Computed example of a mutant assay.
Amino acid sequence: MNDDLKGFYRLVQGSRERVFAWAEQLPPQVYTAEHPEFAYGSLRNIQAHIADCYLNWVGVSGLGMAHEQIGLASDSLYDVAAMRDRFHQVDDVLSRALDSFSALDEPLEIQWREGTLPVTRRWLLLHPITHEFHHKGQLLALGRVLGHPYPPGPDTDLLLPSEV
C-alpha cells in the first residue's frame, strides 16, 4: 500500500479534471483539429499519448498486462467523453499498481525497445505523472494557438490539499 503516492495521484486526477472541464467547453472540432507544428498534432492526440504512456509504463511494464488489454487507437477517441473513459482505465491501472507494488525502490529491469531499462517501481509510477504535466503544457499552448486559451482562474498545476 502506497498511501503517499495514492494521495499524490489524487491531486494529479483533480488537476487533470480541470483540463477535462476546459476541453468539454471547446467546440468538438477544436478538440480534434490537427496542427502540424505541435507534437501529436491535436488536443485529443496529446491526451491519448498521455494515457498511453501511463498504460504502457505502469500497465504493461509494471503490472505485466498484455498490450491487447490496453489497446484503443487515439483516433477512436472522438471526444472528451471518450477520453475521460480512457483515463478511467488509466486510473484503474494506477490504483491496481498502487495497491500491489511493493519494494518501490528495488531495482527492476523492464523490456525497452531492443534491450532492457533499469528502473524502479516508484519510477514507473512517477515517470508518466511528470510526463503528463510536460504534455499538459503543450496541450494548453495548442489551445491558445487554436484560439481557445485555458481561462483565468484555477491553475492547472496540482490541486491545493484543501481542494481534494
Rank of each mutant, 00 (worst) to 15 (best):
P154L: 12
Y54R: 05
Y78E: 11
L98I: 05
P27K: 09
N45K: 13
A73L: 13
F101K: 06
I50C: 02
G153E: 10
V164P: 14
Q25R: 12
L108E: 09
S15P: 00
F101D: 01
W123C: 09
A141E: 09
M83N: 02
S42E: 11
L98D: 00
D3Y: 10
S76I: 09
L104R: 06
Y150R: 07
L63T: 03
V164S: 14
R16A: 01
P151Q: 02
H134L: 07
D52S: 08
L117E: 06
V30Y: 08
K136Y: 09
T156A: 12
Y31C: 10
T32Y: 07
H127W: 00
Q69T: 10
Q29K: 13
L124P: 03
H148Q: 09
D52Q: 12
V145S: 04
L139G: 02
F87R: 06
E34A: 06
D157H: 04
K6L: 12
S76P: 02
L158R: 11
T116H: 06
R84C: 04
A103S: 14
V30M: 12
L11I: 05
Q138S: 02
H49W: 10
P118A: 13
K136V: 03
A39L: 05
L43H: 12
A141D: 06
V145I: 08
F133V: 08
T116Y: 02
W22R: 04
S100Y: 03
S42D: 09
L158I: 10
P36M: 08
L26R: 14
V12L: 02
P128E: 02
P27M: 14
H127C: 01
K6V: 10
L125M: 11
S15G: 13
L72V: 15
D105F: 08
V80I: 13
S95G: 14
Q89P: 02
N45C: 09
D52Y: 12
G153N: 04
W22M: 03
G14R: 04
P118W: 05
Y78P: 14
D157F: 05
V145A: 09
C53T: 15
G153C: 07
L160I: 01
Y78K: 15
R16C: 11
Y31T: 07
D79P: 06
Q111W: 11
R144T: 12
Y9I: 00
A82D: 15
W57D: 03
Y54D: 04
A51V: 02
S15K: 00
L158N: 11
L159I: 07
P128V: 05
T130I: 08
S42T: 13
G7N: 13
D75E: 14
L108K: 01
A48Q: 12
A48V: 13
S15V: 00
F20P: 01
L142C: 01
F38L: 07
R144N: 14
A33C: 11
R16Q: 05
M65K: 14
H49F: 07
N2Q: 00
L142E: 00
F38P: 07
T130F: 08
L94D: 01
A73I: 07
L72H: 11
L43D: 10
D79R: 08
L108V: 05
A103Q: 15
H49K: 15
L5A: 04
A33M: 06
S15F: 06
Y54F: 15
W112R: 07
F38I: 04
V145R: 14
P161F: 10
E68C: 07
S76Q: 14
G143T: 05
E163K: 03
V60Q: 06
P36I: 10
G41T: 01
Y54L: 11
L108R: 01
R122P: 05
E109M: 06
L72D: 09
W123I: 03
